[in-house]
Write a protein that binds this DNA or RNA. Structure first.
Lengths: 160, 160
DNA sequence: AATATTACTTGCAAAATGCAAGTGAGATGC
DNA sequence: GCATCTCACTTGCATTTTGCAAGTAATATT
């Protein structure tokens, strides 16, 4: 068994309620896919911060522990939010790419950010962001989509 | 000490990372406020299903256990998403009302629902919902806002 | 006065999380 | 060709959170 095949084979089990019965209702479904702190933060890293490599996620400022990171990445792959690839230029590295499904979350995600900048008194997001999104949501979404495309275009050929 | 004063005084402690350091970044802030299964589902009940009373939340189909329910309601009150009131017509009952802050989440919330209806193959949401939101987001939001107003208008005079 | 409701609280077992220390495959240096 | 390093996880164990069942106190009902 190679290292690349073992991902998600062990470690902590999934959070409660992340089973087949936890869908049907759209809110419940969403909660099952990204309704926990770490999945949410990882999606941010992928969609907004251009992070793709395991090591990049690990180094992000929230300091997720490595077993939870592995578990959540596997969960996001399982739920079709990310795809996992071996870096062809350095076969011991792995990267994760957002899928159409996770990219389709961008509008809602940005909506949440606008809400946060309005209600978090210590927000670090510039006022210009909320302003831009409110005056031209489609344009703002398109800008983020383009950024994602740029990041993915710079990645090596995905191996599997 | 009266019963009405004891809410949130004990029970399980808050989930990790729900402290003062977990803000700044808008995504982290949002995760701190409603980035867990139960808070998310409770907000759905309040914003979309017109639920207001402790007993109503308890009876909703996900069967939240009563200690977690009390804990999450207290958390949502603390974070300014809900206000807690004693029912003046039956002083052993308590209801919770959405604030401007939680109502401001409606657009993002509905965006998430549209996403779910698109990607959950067993979604129970009608196709008409996503269609309506996509063709007229503002109108759809306004409709839900009006529903919330109706529910709140039917409530007894809030006591404290 | 007795019983029922309602909104929680408490105790305990089960599960998830966090941390530190592995492990094994592939890259790198010499 | 072998030691060393990097990288992506895994494992074990202590701590924390969750879930369940059984209270409890205040108010309402009969």
């Amino acid at each position: 068994m190679t290292k690349a095949d073992t991902a998600g084979s062990a470690g902590p089990s999934k959070p409660k309620g992340w089973n087949k019965e936890w869908n049907g209702c759209p809110v419940r479904y969403a909660a099952g896919v990204f309704g926990d702190k770490w999945s949410f933060v990882l999606l941010r890293d992928v969609l907004l911060h251009g992070k793709r490599y395991y090591g990049e996620f690990q180094r992000s400022e929230e300091r997720i522990s490595t077993n939870i990171l592995a578990n959540r990445l596997a969960h996001l792959v399982e739920t079709g939010m990310l795809t996992r690839h071996i870096d062809s230029t350095s076969r011991n590295k792995v990267f994760y790419r957002p899928t159409a499904k996770s990219r389709a979350l961008l509008p809602a995600f940005l909506g949440v950010m606008v809400w946060s900048t309005e209600y978090d008194s210590c927000t670090e997001a510039p006022d210009s962001f909320a302003k831009a999104f409110r005056s031209d949501p489609k344009g703002t979404i398109a800008w983020y989509e383009a950024e994602i495309d740029k990041v993915d275009a710079a990645l090596p050929d995905p191996e599997p």
